[in-house]
Amino acid sequence: MGSVIQFIKTYLHLILFIIFQVFSLTLVVRFHAYHKIFFFNTSNDVIGVVKTFFNNVNEYRNLRDVNRSLVNENIYLRGFLKENFYIQTKDTFYVNDTLYKQYYVYEPANVIGNSVDKENNFLTLNKGKLSGIEKGMGVFGPDGIVGVVEDVSENFCLVMSVLNSKAIVSPKIKELNLSQGRLVWGNRSPYYAYLSGVNRYEKVKAGQLVVTSPYSKNFPENIPIGVVEEVKEIDGSFLTAKVRLSTSFSQLREVYIVKDLFKEELEKFNTIVEEQN
């Protein structure tokens, strides 16, 4: 304390000088418009330079945090991109009719994964268990059949395409009303499949329409499959026809999943048949 008083005593004149000088200059700035403007302009310039410098330093120092926040923001905004969404519509089409009892309902879906150039091609659709999709359901597009649901997750399903060596479809030649044989994907062209096991005496000709058979387990009747392009005779009593598929698999976007409302009932019969055999 003593040293403080001693200090003040020694430097009293200097302390007074500083205090009064600050006071005087404050008065100058306070009471003179020109000085006021000059002072504030100058001080703003100086403060601006100093603040800009510190701001730059701070900005550089905060780059890591800024980067992190930008990354987080990017992730957040990316979440809103259209590509990240699939449309989960609940508008399953039901038909109410007192005379006709509905057999099938259709669930619209989008193709989100597709392949046409492999030996066994599959599609991925944006509908899954939550939309009531089950294994074995048929899938067709605006132009014709597409495949059969092979596996189901919560939100998605995997469809075995017609363009798959294991895919077998029960066909019907519409003009002849002939449900016979089977349709398999023979070569590796996404445009053609082969109709086989049809009696060679049936009048199968090029240009005839091939649709799904009423015996099909997965599809309603009369969904287009393709058009007979060429008839080949093989194996004596059976003929084989080259069918140009109506569905353009490489451009497939919108499809419908077929829900068979009587599937359980029919499966019960199937198990009896299997037991009998």
Partner: peptide
């Protein structure tokens, strides 16, 4: 009328 200037 020169507040502060002469004092300074």
């Amino acid at each position: 009328n020169s507040f502060g200037i002469h004092a300074s």
